[in-house]
């Protein structure tokens, strides 16, 4: 059974609190617009362990992006408790505890690739030499070292998204938050980036929270999958992915992989995602 889905928050903190990076207890988020109140999230309790790769999956409107944005202090919870590294999301944000990768690369077109990666480092007040070094290191890591003098719009969509990942990694956050980062890319590019991201996560040992609506992507990348359902957004089930730690793309045709994928689909169905 999932260890990191904790219904009683008190019990959670009793457990090895140090190993828990993100913890939500009975979290609810509602939006007010034009006098109408929409509940985006309701009764979400969840803990994410250090070093794990957790995917949030569900149909549109299930609140998976809202949950990620709340962790990043980009949305405010209406009720419930949410901590990141044992701090409030706001403190965590101000202490630069996480890197965020958006659905689109969101690169600044007036900055070269290298200077885009250096942007957070400038804001955090890092010395110029260190900035250049970091940018070089992480651009190499995503395999774009030779493109550092180019401008974002001279790169393909997949390359742009890799730059934005390098940018999120450049200040070496303990937590990487990704909101459907490959959603706008074609499937072949996406496969390549999935492999790339998996290796990156393996080599850095960071904690990752990944929003997606692709079942194979979630199974391939994750150690745990949180299945969510819409109206209002809720956690239906948390599924452990008991595949080998080291994965290549071929694993997606293995029976073990398909079994997990099937469980995810069943959970989605149970959450009325196909209605």
């Amino acid at each position: 059974m999932a260890v990191d889905l904790v219904m009683a928050p008190a019990a959670a903190s009793a457990r090895a609190a140090a190993s828990i990076v993100v913890e939500a207890a009975d979290l609810a988020i509602a939006f007010e617009s034009g006098g109408q109140r929409t509940t985006a999230l309701e009764g979400v309790s969840l803990a994410i362990n250090r070093g794990s790769f957790v995917s949030l999956i569900g149909p549109s409107g299930c609140g998976k992006t809202t949950l990620l944005r709340a962790i990043a202090d980009l949305e405010q919870p209406t009720s419930g408790r949410l901590t990141v590294n044992g701090m409030s999301p706001e403190r965590a944000r101000l202490e630069r505890a996480y890197g965020y990768v958006f659905q689109a690369p969101a690169l600044y077109p007036w900055r070269s690739v290298e200077r885009n990666v250096m942007l957070p480092l400038e804001i955090m007040g890092m010395a110029a030499a260190e900035r250049r070094q970091r940018a070089a290191r992480y651009l190499d890591l995503v395999g774009l070292g030779e493109f550092r003098r180019r401008f974002p719009w001279q790169l393909s969509g997949g390359m742009q998204q890799r730059v934005s990942i390098a940018r999120a990694l450049s200040f070496e956050p303990a937590l990487l938050l990704m909101d459907e980062p490959f959603g706008a890319l074609d499937e072949i590019t996406r496969d390549g980036l999935n492999l790339h991201l998996h290796q990156l996560w393996r080599s850095t040992g960071m904690t990752a929270v990944f929003v997606t609506h692709s079942i194979p992507e979630a199974v391939y990348l994750s150690t745990r999958i949180v299945v969510m359902s819409p109206r209002p957004g809720k956690v239906v089930e948390v599924i452990d992915v008991d595949l080998a730690a080291e994965r290549d793309l071929d694993i997606r045709e293995s029976p073990a992989f398909l079994r997990v994928a099937h469980r995810v689909r069943e959970a989605l169905r149970a959450g009325h995602s196909y209605d």
Binding site: D73, L74, A106
Partner: peptide
């Protein structure tokens, strides 16, 4: 864009 502004916010 909202995304660009959120990015700056995420950097504090």
């Amino acid at each position: 864009g909202a995304m660009e502004r959120d990015l700056m916010r995420s950097y504090g």
